[in-house]
Simulated scan of single mutants.
Amino acid sequence: MAQGVFFEDIEVGRIDRFGHYEVRREEVIDFASKYDPQPFHLDDEAAAKSHFGRLAASGWHTGAMSMAMMAKFFADVGYASMGGAGLDQLRWVKPVYPGDTLTMEIEVKAKRRSKSRPEMGLLDQHFTVRNQHDEVVMTYVATGLVKVREP
């Protein structure tokens, strides 16, 4: 992956919209069986009797799907990502169901150079995940680490 988007290139207020993740039933069940084995993530009958009304993806799975979209986007544009320093304010706003198609948006809210690591900058970012109806299904705030062009 060629790196072409560095800390210096990113402006506060920048909004990137990207992704296309088709949620598959088999993946919902597989993820839940390994990491969130609750009946409404595993069984149609149990899910129908729950507040979800049908089989729903785990919120943690929704987070993993958003990470897959983000990693692909970063690779496609050459984003000089160095990982993340954490996330806050995670909200699962609406359920995600098999058959949904997810997209993402990242807005840069603030940026600053690292005082202890001159080779990186920190971005405060707001993430929004939407379904195919443009309904928000998940939001969170995260601190991203991005390589600076010249420390």
Rank of each mutant, 00 (worst) to 15 (best):
G4W: 00
V5H: 01
V5P: 05
F7Y: 11
E8P: 07
D9P: 08
D9C: 07
I10Q: 03
E11A: 10
E11T: 04
R14P: 03
R14E: 13
D16R: 13
R17E: 15
R17F: 09
G19V: 10
Y21D: 10
Y21G: 13
E22G: 13
E22Y: 12
E22S: 14
V23K: 05
V23A: 07
R25S: 05
E26A: 14
E26I: 12
E27F: 05
E27T: 12
I29H: 07
F31M: 08
A32R: 00
P39Y: 02
P39W: 05
F40M: 14
H41L: 08
H41N: 07
H41V: 08
H41Q: 02
D43K: 04
D43E: 13
E45R: 11
E45G: 11
E45S: 10
A47F: 06
K49G: 13
K49H: 15
S50P: 14
H51C: 10
G53S: 09
G53R: 08
R54A: 09
R54V: 06
L55Q: 01
S58Y: 10
T62A: 08
M65V: 05
M67L: 07
A68H: 11
A71N: 07
K72Y: 00
A75W: 01
A75Y: 05
D76V: 00
V77R: 01
G78H: 06
Y79D: 03
S81E: 07
S81R: 03
S81Q: 02
M82S: 12
G83M: 11
G83K: 08
A85K: 13
G86A: 03
D88P: 00
Q89P: 00
L90C: 04
L90R: 00
L90G: 06
R91A: 12
R91W: 04
P95C: 15
G99M: 09
D100F: 14
L102W: 10
T103Y: 14
M104Y: 02
E105L: 05
E107I: 05
V108F: 10
V108I: 15
K109G: 09
A110R: 13
K111F: 04
K111T: 03
